[in-house]
Design a protein around this nucleic acid. Sequence first.
DNA 1: CCTATTGTACTAAAAAAGTCGAACAATAAA
DNA 2: TTTATTGTTCGACTTTTTTAGTACAATAGG
Lengths: 104, 104
Amino acid sequence: MRKQYQPQTSEIRLSSVLHALSDPRRLQIVLSLKDEAEESCTIYHDLMPKSTLTHHLKVLREAGVAKVRIEGTQHFYSLRTDDLELLFPGLMTSVLNVKPELIE
Amino acid sequence: MRKQYQPQTSEIRLSSVLHALSDPRRLQIVLSLKDEAEESCTIYHDLMPKSTLTHHLKVLREAGVAKVRIEGTQHFYSLRTDDLELLFPGLMTSVLNVKPELIE
DNA sequence: CCTATTGTACTAAAAAAGTCGAACAATAAA
DNA sequence: TTTATTGTTCGACTTTTTTAGTACAATAGG
């Protein structure tokens, strides 16, 4: 369990962020992180198999949308809200406040 | 040259909008429409072949990001700024104001 | 040390997206 | 009516993405 690459703030790109957010399952994950400081991966295991979840979290991480803090064997995910607000002011606010019926 | 389907405002979905915006070439098109009321397709023919352009404009149209007005054989494209602002307040503003070096 | 928990890596298959040439359709203009 | 302009449709091909099973790695606890 190594690497867990996450881009520096200066490496985050809009195309990648929008791509990461455009998948319905990833958008669902992102929205569920809205009000949580951090969230362990296990809560999503009802929604999809572990390996699929790993894939989506990796896309979010590598795009710079989410970050992870590792504690023992548990991974706690959270949004990089501050970085994203700095780079793309207003973007995450508008995405996170989308009306549920307009998501997909 | 018929159909040119464009969704009603109530049919526009965030996933589709984000997907449409996530491709670098489409994002480039969208940004070029920022300050233009309307723009004919011909100006993009340096950037890509006609059929590729048609494809990308179709994705933007069907997602509800752009609309077209047909005049003779010319198609004039513009952004559905008002509709998008109504559905996803602040989203397009943040995308359209991205710093060029943060696009891709 | 043994075992359960948590999540990654690898792999393969299927689905979706992007690219673009060539033929076609509609209009405009000569 | 013939020709040029503008853009679509079709089809083929390539690339990327998504999905998910299986095996593996790291840590925690008994």
